[in-house]
Design a protein around this nucleic acid. Structure first.
Lengths: 136, 136
DNA sequence: ATAATAGTTGTAATCATTATAGATTTGCAA
DNA sequence: TTGCAAATCTATAATGATTACAACTATTAT
């Protein structure tokens, strides 16, 4: 199911998280830009139409959204965190050549993992690296 | 199979990578400290016995070892890379409470992944987050 | 309406990592 | 062995993403 802006707004209301103008804009941006943007990309784009927006606010908002479980942080790259509105079960592939990050479907719950009895698993991430078809 | 220091040395020789004193020390450290140390931990510990060691050398050495495929970089945390001498098929679990990183066995190759036809997969990482048994 | 709380902003600080340049060591040929 | 080029190491400076902070603004509750 694609996460819809209106549904996400309801979700935030339910959790008693204030729907400020800035937060809604960031959330809307993420629903419209599913290419796993960085903070800088989000900030730069939104700054065009909201000249008073602060980068700190983008950081704060993303932290709130991640904590609320509406957004997923991707650390497939060592140096810069990316954000994904899609929190469903899926993996990420990063092309070493062009840097693009692709989603792929995979069933993480089906992944057998010995040695994690009695562990409380809250979050699962699968990151692959390699070369994408366009770059081969 | 546990990676043994002597075998790793041979592997480096085969690949024509110089076995400098510093590189061997870092490699030996990793075989003896399998708790996924950070650069800072490696540097601080080795600095005790090699007072002239530079942190830059630790960074350079780790890059060489990762490129040679002898060491795996772990980016389960956003802010600091950890290093693992174990490059076999396994996943990492990070406890949100105590910060410990656990290995767990899992067969990544068996992970079905739709949408990656024609992708050249070079590396697979699985990161889980949650609470470990000690902290529950 | 007013006070208290939450959110935003801009700047400064932090901190892991990388760049750089000079010093040292190593490998190899004469 | 000697000498030289290439590789490695070291110390310091620079970079750049993220966080801390303090003042300001908006929202909520009484």
């Amino acid at each position: 199911m694609k996460a819809l802006f209106e549904d996400l707004k309801k979700e935030l209301k339910l959790r008693k998280i204030q729907l400020s103008h800035q937060r809604l804009k960031v959330l809307e941006y993420l629903t419209q830009n599913r290419s796993h943007p960085t903070v800088d990309q989000i900030f730069t784009d939104l700054h065009q139409e909201m000249s008073t927006l602060s980068k700190t606010t983008v950081y704060n908002t993303l932290r709130v959204l991640v904590e609320a479980g509406l957004v997923r942080a991707i650390n497939i790259e060592d140096h810069e965190t990316r954000y994904d509105i899609n929190v469903e079960n899926h993996g990420h592939f990063k092309c070493e050549s062009c840097g693009r990050i692709y989603d792929f479907h995979t069933d993480l719950d089906a992944l057998a993992c010995d040695g994690l009895n009695n562990f409380l698993i809250k979050d699962r991430n699968v990151y692959f690296n390699g070369i994408c078809p366009r770059c081969r």
